[in-house]
């Protein structure tokens, strides 16, 4: 079985970032980057499947600048077998990423694409669904449990109504939620081994262009100070004044 795991380089989700003064993007000077946490969970799941069945082969792929190699190396250190970097500095939205991933899927021919349900930088939650649509493959999103069942795969997913379990024919696309697993500590020998695992760099395969573009970025306005009231009546009066009641 072959698994393809797309990973995205994102600003460290715990870093505090500010928009650039001209609103053209984020000021990321001195900010650390990491693997998108949802993708890290996807890598962890793929590696666990490989540990349970050594015939599983895990390829990780990233679409982005050469710096994404760092995130691919981390995925290799976690236990992935090989990596592909589609190297580009072009502006991208989810549609462009899905188009590029489709090309990589046709090249790698995985049985399963396992990826984060969204990236913590733009929170779009689209690339997985778009990729499945492009490929005409079944999809299961927000997975909190994945089990192999012969030539099918069973995915338990979180919905507003509770958990539901889907049975999908392979090949398919599965996107991961936070509850799926807790990624491991990476053993130091794994990091050393990752240095010599294959990492292929290639150019973009499509000329897809983004259909959306960021016009401006601004910090949310600071919260205004509250006001203290002496009684419930005064509170209700104040709420009425504001038109909240």
């Amino acid at each position: 079985m072959k698994i393809l795991v797309p990973v995205k380089r994102v600003v460290d989700p715990y870093a505090k970032v500010k928009p650039l003064p001209d609103g053209s993007g984020l000021d990321v000077a001195g900010v650390k980057f990491d693997v998108n946490p949802f993708d890290e969970i996807a890598v962890e799941e793929a590696v666990r499947m490989k540990e349970a069945d050594p015939s599983v082969h895990v390829t990780v792929v990233s679409v982005g600048t050469s710096e994404s190699e760092e995130q691919l190396r981390k995925a290799l250190a976690m236990g992935a077998d090989e990596a592909v970097l589609v190297e580009t500095g072009d502006p991208m939205d989810s549609g462009v990423v899905a188009a590029e991933l489709e090309a990589v899927v046709r090249q790698v021919q995985p049985d399963l694409v396992l990826m984060g349900k969204q990236a913590t930088d733009d929170d779009n939650n689209q690339a997985g669904q778009m990729l499945a649509a492009r490929l005409g493959w079944p999809q299961a999103t927000f997975a909190c449990k994945i089990a192999r069942a012969g030539d099918h795969i069973e995915v338990t997913r979180e919905t507003d109504a509770g958990e539901e379990t889907l049975r999908l024919a392979l090949p398919c696309v599965v996107t991961t939620d936070l509850r799926l697993n807790e990624p491991r500590y990476i053993a130091l020998p794994g990091i050393i081994k990752a240095r010599s695992k294959p990492l292929a760099k290639q150019a973009r395969a499509t000329d897809a262009r983004p259909k959306s573009r960021v016009t401006t970025m601004a910090a949310p306005p600071p919260r205004a100070a509250g006001r203290k009231v002496a009684s419930v009546d005064e509170l209700i009066g104040a709420l009425r004044e504001r038109g909240s009641l």
Partner: peptide, 14 residues
């Protein structure tokens, strides 16, 4: 290097 910092990160998490 990048992967040396990854080792340090693992140490901090531990």
């Amino acid at each position: 290097a990048g992967d040396e910092q990854l080792m340090v990160q693992q140490a901090e998490q531990f």
